[in-house]
Design a protein around this nucleic acid. Structure first.
Lengths: 327, 327
DNA sequence: GTTTATTGTTGCCATTGTGGCACTAATAAA
DNA sequence: TTTATTAGTGCCACAATGGCAACAATAAAC
């Protein structure tokens, strides 16, 4: 990274008011921002920022540098725009894997629009709920729940993942609505099971605020979220599912969230996994398109569940793993 | 190196008309310029230069990019100037070694002026005619004749090095003026001898144009050029010396170039040697100051010998090891 | 006032990019 | 036609980058 790029990062730091925010926006570690700002000051031989451990202020030099930095960004933008007037389109194969539900609902729409924007990019999507070998099977990008087993891979959280417990009204008529997790545990459950993820216990916070788990009565298992939802709608089992599985089942009343007063912990976040950094441009652009489609603050799938943020003890303030924004 | 720096290099390439010239000016290998221009075109996704193996022309995109590149350079210059208004001075120790003559005449004056510009830089000069261990003895920079023995060091030619043969008028009265190298070989010579360099034969081109050497009659040896010059001035020996040894001895008539019709090959160039690339700024600045002081095209020491470029078969065109410039 | 959460910093390390060298191909100059 | 010079490229050593983990300190929460 050269001085010019560091100046542009400096500008972003000042505009965002935070090293941490810039890191999150750029999908890099916070330490990178810190180090690059230090290097910029070494390059220029002048201090631009006075820092405390949680904030900073501009020096006189920093204030003056800011004006020039804005002109620099504008000019560089114009320069790059010239190039784009002569651009050759990005092309090549983009091979992506995802779990089935996420793939169908969130990756596929993005891929369709992405190929409209870049017709010369070939996209290959593999919907796999089993563990995949990202490197060995030649994937450019993988979307998974939870961190990868292979620590040599790079993984970024792109959306928080919250669970909810749903049942059909018919189910509640048959079994009565459970008031406690212990009551729930006796009822028949439909649960998710695949190589990568197997649900047999539910974690929750007890009345004393301690996180604990309870073994549930799993009577039906499948590795497809739609199948679990169908089973729940049939009224013959309840299920606990990630919010991203829900389409309009709650909006339409076919499924009802239950035990919403119980506090549940966030589940493993949805991650984008890639084999190494320095992604090709088409991969980076696709990654960003998916993240924008899902939504950076609140995953769009949570909008399918009215008042979801008031259920299960979720904080009203956003506790997303991708970072909390101050106003 | 980022896109902005590559754009600035692109601008320089166009202005200089040559990858090779830019490389020489920046003290980098020619392959670096080639590769960076290719990367710039990859970054921008557009071709800027059409190349043949010895020249290039601008594409339409390249022409348009050129205008923006000039604005970019100007703005970046202004930005850096702001920083310099708040600058802290470069400081630290700069430890340099050089052969005695070069050190006294060319390094010392530069070091004096350099420390006036940068009072907080300490300079330590070691005048050594023996082989030195650049890394082991902690030198930042060494100026030597000829390439270093240790191939792990980085070495750049900074000045060509041509020999001449001089004698005092009194010497010529005593022995007569030699007309051939064979006649010269019989006369008493004062020659240079140190650990690093020992002269006992003179190379020259014979009447058929073949490079050959002749053993000379070395009657006096010293490792100090001034001493050899003094011996020659005394009229008791001639000597063959590098041009950088000559001050005003020729201008004043105290020494006369002889056998000037004989064609002599260039000798090992004067090199700057440093332990690794990525030099600290003070070292880089000092290096550039020395190179400017010596002169990039024709070493300034050659100006001490009137009509030197017409002697000894030296090409009228400049055959400096640091590169030849087309008009 | 105390405790907790968050941010900026820094050491360490694996990975990637840079820069230098050697060699090649091709073209301009001799 | 021959020679010299320039741009290109493969290979490799070295330096920079980016990520992770842990720490210190401060702002926010209680």
């Amino acid at each position: 990274m050269d001085t010019t790029s560091r100046i542009l990062m400096f500008l972003e730091v000042v505009e965002q008011g935070s090293f941490a925010k810039v890191a999150e926006r750029r999908n890099i570690d916070r330490s990178v921002v810190s180090k690059q700002m230090n290097k910029l000051e070494d390059d220029l031989g002048v201090r631009l920022l006075n820092r405390t451990t949680r904030s900073f202020s501009l020096t006189a030099a920093g204030s003056e540098m800011l004006k020039k930095a804005k002109e620099l960004r504008e000019l560089l933008g114009e320069t790059l725009t010239i190039a784009q007037n002569y651009h050759t389109e990005p092309k090549g194969l983009l091979k992506v894997t995802s779990s089935t539900i996420i793939g169908k609902r969130y990756i596929l729409p993005v891929a369709i629009e992405f190929q409209q924007r870049f017709p010369q990019v070939e996209v290959e999507i593999r919907l796999e709920d089993r563990l995949v070998d990202v490197v060995g099977e030649g994937y450019d990008l993988a979307f998974r729940v939870g961190p990868p087993r292979d620590s040599s891979l790079i993984s970024r959280a792109i959306a928080r993942n919250r669970m909810l417990i749903v049942a059909a009204p018919k189910f509640l008529e048959t079994y009565g609505e459970p008031k406690t997790m212990q009551q729930l545990a006796k009822l028949p459950a439909a649960t998710y099971a695949s190589d990568a993820l197997k649900v047999s216990q539910l974690p929750y916070y007890d009345s004393k605020g301690n996180e604990t788990t309870i073994t549930i009565n799993s009577q039906f298992r499948a590795n497809d979220g739609d199948v679990l939802i169908s089973k729940a709608i049939s009224g013959t089992a309840y299920c606990a599912v990630p919010a991203f599985v829900i389409s309009d089942e709650v909006m339409s009343g076919r499924l009802v969230p239950i035990l919403t007063h119980v506090k549940l912990p966030d589940y493993h976040s949805v991650q984008a996994v890639y084999p190494h950094r320095g992604l090709p441009v088409r991969t980076q652009l696709f990654f960003e398109a998916v993240r924008d489609f899902i939504g950076k603050e609140t995953p769009n799938w949570e909008k399918n569940i009215p008042d979801f943020d008031k259920m299960y003890g979720f904080e009203v303030k956003d506790s997303s793993p991708v970072g909390r924004w101050t106003a």
